[in-house]
């Protein structure tokens, strides 16, 4: 049943221009960063005289692309997630789902995984793009895997924030703005606390936990953080929808 709802969401991304436009923009943006990385690699490396300054092509191009990824996704995910529930509220289509033999947990998970599958498509696409380096260089796939995995968890967290804010309002644009601000705070406040390495904010900052993956390290601590983060917002969304039924 979760799959049915997820496939409905994926379909509705693609029957409207929204899905295609976002996909096109994201593709263009990542393509540009990738090209930029490849083009500047030899320039920068020929200027680097000391061996310590030299890095492999995977890390160099990877850093350019994945460094931009979380920033681009920060904009893309709220735009994709904003309609998930708020549009149903606005069009009053929620009774369609509520009267079907489906539980609210399944509805929310279905919607989340529908969005996540769409986002995962982009993440996998980035991975494939970077893998093409393998044609003329030796790509460090371990590094790519860890970045891909980290990015998946990051967009999953964005999606969870997005679906929660989408469940709060019947105005998709408000949902988009709120989830953007919230995700932005969790990423952007990082720089204010850079001078205090032991500050509590580092424990909740999405960026801090994502950085481990971007260094090529897969640590269970960060995986658990992201999974907890995602499930918290999914549970909050389920509770919000259940309140519709209880409070009316």
């Amino acid at each position: 049943m979760i799959i049915n709802i997820a496939s409905k969401e994926i379909k509705s991304f693609f029957v409207t221009p929204m899905g295609w436009i976002i996909l096109a923009l994201i593709t263009a943006a990542f393509g540009t960063y990738y090209l930029e990385g490849v083009n500047s690699y030899f320039e920068v490396m020929s200027g680097a005289i000391r061996p310590a300054e030299r890095v492999g092509v995977t890390i160099y191009v990877g850093q350019t692309v994945y460094g931009a990824a979380f920033f681009l996704m920060l904009f893309a995910v709220p735009l994709m997630s904003m309609r998930l529930i708020s549009e149903e509220r606005r069009q009053q289509t929620l009774p369609f789902l509520f009267s079907a033999p489906v539980s609210i947990v399944e509805i929310v998970l279905g919607k989340f995984f529908g969005l996540f599958a769409f986002l995962a498509l982009m993440v996998v696409y980035i991975f494939l793009m970077l893998s093409t380096l393998n044609i003329w260089a030796d790509v460090d796939f371990g590094y790519l895997f860890s970045n891909t995995f980290g990015l998946l968890l990051l967009v999953g967290s964005f999606a969870a924030i997005g679906i929660y804010f989408s469940s709060l309002t019947s105005q998709p644009i408000i949902a988009a703005i709120l989830s953007f601000i919230f995700a932005f705070l969790l990423l952007g406040l990082e720089s204010y606390f850079a001078s205090q390495p032991n500050h509590w904010f580092h424990h909740v900052s999405l960026l801090k936990h994502f950085q481990t993956f971007s260094r090529g390290v897969i640590s269970s601590k960060d995986i658990i953080y992201f999974l907890l983060f995602i499930s918290t917002f999914i549970v909050l969304t389920i509770r919000r929808l259940d309140a519709d039924r209880l409070r009316g």
Binding site: M1, N4, S12, V15, T16, T93, L94, A100
Partner: peptide, 21 residues
């Protein structure tokens, strides 16, 4: 009426059919 207006009639009914197992 709870209709997903971006779909075609048969697409929408297919969604309804799937939701109802």
């Amino acid at each position: 009426r709870p209709l997903y207006k971006e779909f075609r009639v048969n697409e929408f009914l297919r969604i309804a059919a799937k939701l109802h197992n």
